[in-house]
Design a binder for these strands. Structure first.
Lengths: 128, 128
DNA sequence: TACAAATCAGTAATGATTACTGAAATTATA
DNA sequence: TATAATTTCAGTAATCATTACTGATTTGTA
């Protein structure tokens, strides 16, 4: 039942920590294959899921139907580019009090919130 | 190229307008079958998509991996119950200025934002 | 070193959604 | 009103992301 070390998991973790672009499972798979050509896509999915449960990663859903992952597990917001699909970190302060504000007009327990922006990113503006 | 009337689309539209629980395509399909036993799931998907493009519906993604639809196309927020999966409207005011606030620290064009809360809804608190 | 348990690679299965096809319904026109 | 043109439909097959399964390999421990 105990957690055992695995090179693959370690490689996935290191890759994720080196990234700020919130890769999907498939994107991780493509990159990890440089180092581990035989790694299986299932292994990537399983370890991303495991690392998320361990609190080392955060699963991010920005509305494109794909699961993105982020090694920065602090509360922060994201931007999704409708043009190129990039997921970018927002620098604005997170609004911690918003859960309390929302609670006042809601019958239930609010545990968390997710705020995602979308539009056109800086790189795509010239093209559009 | 012109849009033609269809009973099925009209039925889907009316069903959606009678609902406040943000049904998924499958849920719409199940209900519409009472009236149209032969309707196809593909027809439901196609018309939900079409009605969304026409601006009569709004597609909502609350992070459960399913597409929910809402006949209330105004800007408002939703709550997702981690216990029963219900998607519930929030009564709080929408923060229109938040796009401007976010724009100040972001290089790109922010067109919209999506704010979703999650936790345990009123009906599920007694059980938990 | 040897055993038990976790992890793996490879592959099959799942579930939501989309695409395809020939038939039926709707609209425009004669 | 009949006909032709075009959209929409039902039914089904295909796609895509993700998850589950299986027998072989790794890892931790005695």
């Amino acid at each position: 039942m105990a957690l055992k070390y695995s090179r693959q998991r370690e490689a996935i973790k290191e890759f994720m920590m080196s990234r700020k672009d919130h890769p999907t499972a498939d994107s991780v798979y493509m990159h990890i294959r440089d180092e581990y050509p035989n790694i299986s896509l299932g292994t990537v999915y399983r370890n991303l899921q495991l690392l998320t449960e361990l609190g080392e990663l955060q699963k991010i859903r920005v509305g494109d139907g794909l699961d993105h992952f982020d090694a920065d597990t602090s509360l922060h917001y994201h931007f999704y580019c409708n043009e190129c699909g990039a997921v970018i970190d927002m620098n604005m302060d997170s609004i911690k009090e918003i859960n309390d504000i929302a609670s006042k007009t809601f019958d239930g327990i609010i545990e968390s919130h997710n705020l995602t922006f979308s539009g056109i990113c800086g790189k795509c503006i010239p093209k559009s």
